[in-house]
Structures are given as C-alpha cells and as structure tokens.
Simulated scan of single mutants.
Amino acid sequence: MVKSKVWTPKRKFDGKVQTSDFHLVEEEVSDDLKDGEYLIEALHWTVDPYMRTREVGNVERNQCMPGEQIANMTAYFGFLELCQPKEGDTVLVNGAAGAVGSLVGQIAKIKGCKVVGCAGTEDKCKWLKELGFDEVFNYKKVDLSEALKTAAPDGYDCFFDNIGADFTSTALKHMKLFGRVSICGQISMYNDKEPPRGVYPFMDILAKQLKVEGFIVLRWYPRWAEGEKDMAQWIREGKIKYKETIYKGFENMPTAFVGLFDGANTGKAIISS
C-alpha cells in the first residue's frame, strides 16, 4: 500500500471560500496492480474557479472535490465555435489575464481581430499589451461603460465573458448588431450567497439580436486532438504565449484556489510537488 494525500472540504462553502474550509487527509492506495491497471504519481495540479460551483450541491463533507490535472481547451473551442470570429472583428475579453482569457485574446489576434482586454492590476494590463492586445484597461480604475466606449467606439462583434453580473450587463450595451457572446465563467458571483440583483440585459439581447450562449468545454471532448494540435503549433510558432502562477507544494493547494477569487494569479494557477 502507498499513501496518497487528499484535500477535502470540511463543510459546505458559505460565501467566500477560505483556506480554513479544507483539511488534508491521507488515504491508502493499493499498489497490488492487476493486468491493465496502473498507478500514477501526480507531480502538478491545477485549480480553476469553476470548482467552486461544482462543490455546491454535489460534494459532501470529507469528500474529495472534483478537479483535473493540467489541460485547457476552453479558450480554443469556447471562442472559435461560439463567437465565430472573422478578420476585422472587434473582440472584448474580460478577466483577460487569466488562463483562459489570455489565450482567447491571442487566438483572436491570430484570426485578425482587434482585441480589447481588461484586468484588475497594472502589471496584468502591462502583460496583456505584451501579448498583443490592442486596447487594455484596468476595470477597477475606470468607469466601465466609458472605458468600453473609448476602446471601441463602434462597439464589439464578439464578447468572451469570464466575469458575469454587472460587467456583462454593461458590456452587452456596447455590442454591435448581431454580436456573438460566449459565456464561459461568472467568477464575480461564485462566492455570492444570493443571486445577484441588477439590471437585466434581455432588452439589449432582443434589440441587437445578439447570439448569447453558455458552454461547458467537455461538449467538444471528441475533438480534443484538433484543438491540441492547433494550440501546440501556435505555441511553437510564437503566436501564443502564456504565464503560470506556480505554488510549490501540495499543501498550498487551498491557498492557490482561494487566490483565484482575489486575482492573485496571472495566467494558469498551478501547484507543483
């Protein structure tokens, strides 16, 4: 038998997730393998905001919280399949310095689009400019509607949404006729105890005849190899760049997870052994 370390929730999350909501336990894993079985040692792990929503209603106390080891096709399929970008389109990406948003912006540039991105710190905004984003702003320091108008006076053809709530309601007012919106994440609401109350954007969707669609990336799982091939080629060609925020030690996984909701990461948050 070998020992395996497991992080489990102590309780159902109540509002903003805290590191104290988890505890570390050890489990015994059999190394008496039968034909066709194998035992893997994990060296790297990833945490993502969606894991906060999976826990609600699905994970009981002391159960392992679902997650994955490292892989990311969300930007590729979620943007290309739903937004259907065309050369010359203007694309808006919020949460643009995150693991998904930073890739969406770069893919949009590969497709010949003008790209507007926003992030929550000056360092993150500087990095977005280095990635080739055409217009960048710190959403914490501006009037959002004015900033969106200044960055793209004629409006947006595509909007890749990672934040949700008030940001989404405001952004939809700046979409062009027949714009396309891909709803990827709603990180601004994951820790909320109650559904948000605000201005609902349904009249904007109707009047501008927008296509708005949410997605879970596993719908394209049968096409995974296609996305991996294109992304790997773009990385080799230098068209896609990335950053990783690396936490050393499995014991720091809750810190990495909580940090997602405080904007502590630039790019993908990774835990390494």
Rank of each mutant, 00 (worst) to 15 (best):
N138P: 08
I270C: 04
D31K: 06
N162H: 10
D48R: 01
V59H: 11
L82A: 07
W234D: 03
A42K: 14
M203S: 07
C64E: 14
W220F: 00
P85L: 13
S145D: 15
S145F: 10
F137T: 00
P254F: 13
G67C: 05
V2Q: 15
M65H: 09
D21I: 03
V47L: 07
R197A: 09
G101F: 09
E228F: 12
N138G: 08
D143Y: 03
E146K: 12
V199D: 13
F137K: 02
A75S: 09
A165H: 10
Q233Y: 01
T266I: 11
I110P: 09
F77Y: 14
F160R: 01
D32I: 11
D262Y: 13
N72A: 08
G238H: 01
P195L: 05
R180Y: 03
K111F: 13
L39R: 12
W220R: 07
R197S: 11
L39K: 05
G132W: 08
T46Q: 10
G198F: 08
T74A: 08
L128D: 05
F178D: 13
G57Y: 06
E251Y: 00
P9D: 06
E68L: 14
T121W: 12
T8V: 15
V100N: 04
A96P: 05
L33Y: 02
D31R: 07
Y76S: 02
D192L: 14
P222A: 05
L206A: 11
S20Y: 07
V217D: 06
Y200D: 08
G267K: 04
F133N: 07
A269G: 01
G267A: 09
Y190T: 03
C113E: 12
H23E: 13
P222Y: 00
I110D: 15
L210E: 01
V258S: 05
